[in-house]
Design a binder for these strands. Structure first.
Lengths: 311, 311
DNA sequence: CCAAGTTACGAGTCACGTAAGGATT
DNA sequence: AATCCTTACGTGACTCGTAACTTGG
């Protein structure tokens, strides 16, 4: 009668528990997670309790709800696992549906704003004039998640890295480098460093910075690359619009780091603004194309070919 | 009363279903999977049906049981997901237990047989004389799985690659390159090519090869690296012992590809055998150290430091 | 015709909801 | 006192096992 008699109920870590755990951790609240997931708050409590009793570690501190050290560790795994579950579903489901005639492209602001995407899309529309193209701009996280889920055919993301190193695999998504260019810091013309032909990143550690994590590189990332403390935020910009960010920098609210191809001074000639290249350390702004398995001869595959290096 | 009324039962892809699916696919049989998993065969049938009805794609052909195209795709994702689930469990659980005083190292035959491991272990035992060390030799797959599960503290795996390229991330495990050396083909002294100072891989495509996937590189991999067809198996060796494989090669049963450091002719001076370096294409035999999160000052961390390049 | 997967059906379990009970601010 | 999480308890859904059925070699 009883199926499980030998070994106890090991391996109770099921996907649903992880989904709940991630949601609770993100929202910092059992009740909010309950609303979002469509459970009662008691159910959430029970699920977290099940997870904790299975792993025999407290995962969340209560009041306020924050991940414990073990919980933080689990969070990283859980997010990757859930994303790959989505990717698996999208990947398998894709084989059923007829190849769609439309193309949905996602991009982070700076990736979509680089010259590569408009050029590639022009070439693509010349070959496929009737193609219905949608471009969606969002955060890096949003783009990656949506690509994994198959809601986007391809995604363009951007970020700062050392010139050489490869990015880690991400939920079985293919990543191709589209472009790599130097970086420049945006300064009001009145700024003491505005006259310089180039700068070192460490020279800017003590300046006032604009924290704009959804558009530019997070300050923590800049700090890591520079290898020194500093880069403290004097202003926070939570939007997704590059131009707004540049205008804030022009108005003297703080510095921001952009790819040197952005050339804000030509886009905004009337504002007293200048972009000074940053030469040390060797850091590049890289745009990457991300996609799951692409169907042969699909619009998405054609776009990927157009965006790939040396085409 | 009914919690799920709006949206139907989406997201039924739970870990248990994937475990069952992977097992069935591996064993090629519902009933065998039932035995292995401790279910009845009917339950397996129902689980697979649930998965297929959720994804709305047939995943397995029946009679004989083989993955469909969609099933093959899912299989890759599922294996990665399940492994990462194990890794998550191990990673989180590790924080609970006291740091163990023993060290369990896994290695593939050629990785464990390279000079690096014995040397590093000597140094380690000099520093920690009372340390209880276990070395376990298994297939690459077994080593990786066990490291992810936390059954092994660290693992050494080996394989052939182009000199530059990085290996993809694997279930959040850290991979460090321990050594990279050239490769050589093992020939009986009577072999027509035995006199050459070096060889190109393509010269060997039409030779008789020993398929020894658990020790040497799989022939399919060699074929891929050479870029030509051929490398057909004339003999199959399913064991894990390098010396047995070399003796088979010496006896003329076929060729095998080993790291040039293996020097079988010095290990077996009495047999008429010689190892000829393979120079084209540029392929190296790389040994990699794999591990999850290591505790500071733990034996495993010390060993990792000893094995890491330039220490 | 036998081996092996599917379907039908009943039963036990488990997970959820309701509601009452703490704890912390 | 209010908010938020936990615990207790009952019920319904779900998944598993038994067993009969079906299909392919």
């Amino acid at each position: 009668m009883v199926p499980c008699d030998s070994i106890s109920d090991a391996y109770r870590v099921e996907a649903q528990l992880l989904r709940t755990f991630v949601t609770v951790a993100r929202l910092g609240s059992f009740s909010a997670a309950a609303v979002e997931l469509g459970y009662t708050q008691a159910a959430i409590s029970q699920q977290i309790a099940a997870l904790e009793s299975d792993l025999k570690v407290p995962l969340l501190n209560r009041r306020p709800v924050t991940p414990t050290e073990a919980g933080g560790r689990l969070l990283q795994h859980a997010e990757a696992i859930l994303l790959r579950l989505d990717a698996a579903r999208a990947d398998v489901t894709r084989m059923t549906r007829a190849p769609s005639a439309s193309l949905v492209v996602g991009a982070t602001p700076l990736a979509g704003g680089s010259a590569a995407l408009p050029l590639a899309l022009s070439a693509l529309r010349q070959r496929l004039p009737r193609l219905d193209v949608t471009v969606q701009v969002g955060t890096r996280d949003h783009v990656l998640t949506s690509v994994a889920r198959g809601e986007l055919d391809v995604g363009l993301t951007d970020g700062l890295t050392a010139p050489g190193d490869q990015l880690p695999e991400f939920a079985a998504l293919t990543a191709v480098c589209v472009s790599q260019v130097g970086i420049a810091v945006v300064l009001p013309t009145g700024h003491p460093l505005a006259g310089r032909a180039s700068l070192r990143l460490t020279d800017l550690a003590d300046a006032r910075w604009i924290a704009a994590p959804q558009v530019a590189a997070p300050l923590a990332e800049i700090r890591r690359l520079a290898g020194v403390e500093g880069f403290r935020p004097a202003f926070h910009y939570d939007g997704l619009d590059t131009l707004s960010l540049i205008k804030l920098a022009a108005a003297g609210h703080g510095l921001t780091l952009l790819p040197e191809t952005a050339r804000p001074e030509t886009a905004l000639p009337e504002t007293g603004i200048i972009a000074v290249p940053v030469t040390t350390p060797r850091v590049v702004h890289r745009v990457e194309l991300m996609h799951g398995t692409l169907r042969e001869r699909s619009p998405a595959a054609e776009l990927a070919a157009l965006l790939a290096p040396r085409d």
